[in-house]
Simulated scan of single mutants.
Amino acid sequence: MNPKISDFGMARSFGGNQMQANTTRVVGTYGYMPPEYAIDGIFSTKSDVYSFGVLVIEIISGKKNRSFVHPDHSLNLLGHAWTSYKEDKLSGLVDEAISESCNHAEVFRVIQIGLLCVQQHPADRPSMSHVVLMLSSNIALPHPKQPGFFMERTFHDPDSSSNQLTITVLEPR
């Protein structure tokens, strides 16, 4: 868990006043890629905002986005954070290592900022300069919309009989 904000796998750099671009091959670190890039190859100045939001939620929760497992549901970390936010249960998202010594109001504010960064649509995400402003001041925060890649996963059960192997023998006529 030593990501670098400038190193989220973006193989191309922006030229001049370019605000977004398309790539022919998607490269990057799964779990940090925004949906528009992972699905359509479109990246913009909001792509790193998404990655930053994932990182913020990982730091506060002490969990990795890609390997998150919860005993009560099959949501990924972003889905768990979103559900916790909607149900006003953010204290369960905070890592036990910091829970006792932190200012919960500040941590909940940072979670909300992280959720603003990972919203599904790039236009809904704040710019990084606005993220810095939100983190360094007490300005009112909008309510985030559903994150990109908010999903429930189905894990493979090795004991399941639904994954049986069949063999077909082909014989010439």
Results as ranks from 00 to 15, higher is better:
Y32K: 02
W82C: 00
I60Y: 04
E87P: 01
S47D: 08
D88I: 11
M151A: 12
K46Q: 15
E100K: 10
G92W: 00
C102M: 05
D88G: 02
L93N: 00
C117Q: 09
E152H: 01
P126L: 06
G16R: 13
P71F: 03
K46C: 09
K86T: 14
I139D: 11
K145H: 13
P34V: 06
P172T: 07
M10H: 13
F68P: 02
Y50F: 15
V27Q: 12
H156V: 15
N163M: 11
M10E: 10
K46G: 09
P144K: 08
S44H: 10
W82F: 01
K64M: 08
H70R: 01
A11K: 15
K63G: 00
H104V: 09
F8R: 15
D157K: 14
S67H: 13
V69M: 14
H70K: 01
S13T: 08
S84N: 03
R153K: 15
Y50P: 02
S137N: 05
F52Y: 15
I39L: 15
R66W: 03
K46E: 12
Q164P: 00
I98G: 01
V56T: 11
T29Q: 11
I98C: 02
H70T: 01
T45N: 11
I39M: 14
P126C: 05
P126S: 07
G79K: 00
V56Q: 04
N163G: 09
V107T: 10
H70S: 01
G15A: 10
D157R: 11
G16F: 00
S136I: 06
S129H: 07
Q112G: 05
I5R: 09
K46M: 10
V94F: 02
F108N: 12
A140C: 05
G79M: 03
E106F: 09
D159H: 03
N2L: 14
G114C: 13
C102E: 08
K86F: 07
D72W: 02
A105Y: 03
L77W: 04
A140S: 12
D95M: 06
T24E: 13
M10P: 03
A81W: 01
F68A: 05
S44N: 14
S74K: 02
Q120P: 06
K46N: 12
S13A: 09
M10K: 11
T24H: 13
D72M: 07
F68E: 14
G92N: 13
R25G: 01
A38P: 02
P172H: 12
Q146N: 11
T83P: 00
Q20T: 08
T168Y: 12
V69S: 12
H73V: 01
F149P: 01
I42F: 10
R109W: 05
S101G: 06
S74W: 00
I98M: 03
E96F: 03
R66P: 00
Q119Y: 06
E36G: 13
T45A: 07
S84D: 02
S129T: 06
D159W: 02
D95T: 05
P34Q: 05
M1N: 13
G16T: 07
I59M: 15
H80P: 02
E87R: 03
L116N: 04
S161G: 05
M19W: 07
S127E: 10
S129F: 04
G16V: 03
P172F: 07
M128P: 07
K145C: 07
D95E: 08
